[in-house]
Design a protein around this nucleic acid. Structure first.
Lengths: 259, 259
DNA sequence: ATCGTCGTGTCCGTTGAATGGACACCGGCG
DNA sequence: CGCCGGTGTCCATTCAACGGACACGACGAT
């Protein structure tokens, strides 16, 4: 640790600043892009970027811009919950998709956000911007509500006491109302949102449970508002969720636990 | 850059040593595991690991061991050639898989190895150890031969002049023989191996070409030795490869180029 | 109960590696 | 031609990383 504990003053932090400058919107950055995004002097950025490139963490395009390297991608594949969950869930997600022909998403929670780790969607996608690796808010997405409901009291208190962003006029931002929904979700194992995150998009979600009864992920189907599918999707969604949970070792009777 | 250019003496290199200690075999490492793998003093390793954990690059298990964090996984999803190729190829791979019921692999080249970026396999898999994020040698795997054949003269010279590891008695390690195979592969666009990497496993592979005619990936089917499928798989494999190439913008008539 | 071992966590004086301001090069443009 | 934005290089300064030393708790054997 650096002598002082002020954040952002260690090499590591600077190195990671460079790495985390990359995002879904900007997956190829030039040296000056990095300079601007990190706020670090260009000599420093250059040195760090070159070192990262040397070991394959970044790779440099022929036009001089940097992208995430394969080595880093490989490291990512080693993340737990990710690869095993994806492979377990994939067949179920495909079946669900062929049955419904609607967006299907699998997400886990990281901190106070939901991260999409797998996704299947119709080629002719109605304006839905989610993407593998992308993040969704906990309080107004289907998967988010499921993950929040089972994230433990501390998490719920933390999220509800913070500012709840209103994405659309229909976003529920009243803590008391939300607590009710979350309790209901814990009872039924499912949650639904109607146009709370994106106008025109409804979503139903269910929990995924592992062999210890832990809620490790959430599975959801997203449909266009007004489509009757919203309710029709529920039974098949629940069945798929239970199927995935079974693959993970869960059996009826295993008590479902939060966090 | 550090004043001197000796490798392994910069913070960045140490930080990356820690990260790259993780591998498919060891995806959860304790502090002392990291200490041993990196050869760094434990105080140093600890400091680095904690910093990485703070920003979510690593995450710490309840038992104290470290794993790759979700933030790092998210970064990985931004790697080019990876996400776009995967999504383009996925439907074709699935069709191929349902048609053949055999292992299907998609790989790209990184340096002198092939990296598997997507894989579909039968649940009852005959001893095949490949895995997403895993690596295969260029000179004796199906995808490897395709990628090597189109990797440019320098790469071929480099690989053939080096030591060619003999994985099985059938592994071809004679440079002249290999050159012949590679030339043939460039002509036909396909390569096949019979038990050269793993005894009992045959493989046929074909190239994937993008809109510029660049060979960006290789697609292969792996079957058990002796099964007639080996040849029967070829037509559908070629068709799938062409299909993926078309999605990437390739059209008949676009000249196929190496590297 | 006692000792040894192993994994983990913490401290702090030393020092050498990261830093970043300054300078230089290059191509495009008005 | 002069200006500008992006890139690449240099090197004296200094401050953050370093790692040896110490400490704690858990476990197992004696």
């Amino acid at each position: 640790m650096p002598r002082t504990n002020e954040p952002g003053r260690s090499v590591s932090s600077r190195l990671l600043q460079v790495l985390f400058s990359f995002g879904p919107d900007q997956s190829a950055l030039s040296l000056t892009d990095l300079e601007r995004r990190t706020g670090l002097p260009h000599a420093t950025v250059r040195r760090l970027a070159m070192e990262l490139t040397d070991v394959g963490a970044l790779s440099r395009n022929h036009d001089g811009r940097f992208t995430i390297g394969l080595r880093l991608w490989q490291l990512g594949t080693l993340a737990p919950l990710t690869e095993s969950l994806r492979t377990s869930a994939q067949p179920f997600m495909e079946d669900l998709y062929t049955a419904l022909r609607q967006h299907v998403q699998l997400a886990v929670r990281e901190g106070a956000e939901a991260v999409i780790i797998e996704r299947l969607s119709a080629p002719r996608a109605p304006g839905l911007v989610s993407q593998v690796g992308g993040r969704l808010p906990l309080h107004c997405s289907g998967v988010g509500k499921v993950l929040l409901a089972h994230g433990g009291g501390d998490l719920i208190d933390g999220v509800l006491s913070g500012k709840l962003r209103r994405y659309t006029p229909r976003t529920v931002v009243d803590p008391t109302a939300l607590r009710g929904e979350l309790a209901e979700c814990r009872r039924t194992g499912t949650a639904s949102v109607r146009g709370e995150l994106t106008t025109g998009a409804d979503s139903v979600a269910t929990r995924i449970v592992d062999g210890d009864g832990m809620v490790v992920a959430a599975l959801s189907v997203v449909v266009r508002t007004g489509s009757v599918k919203h309710q029709a999707a529920l039974p098949s969604l629940i069945a798929s969720g239970l199927g995935i949970s079974r693959v993970l070792g869960w059996r009826p009777g295993i008590r479902i636990r939060d966090v």
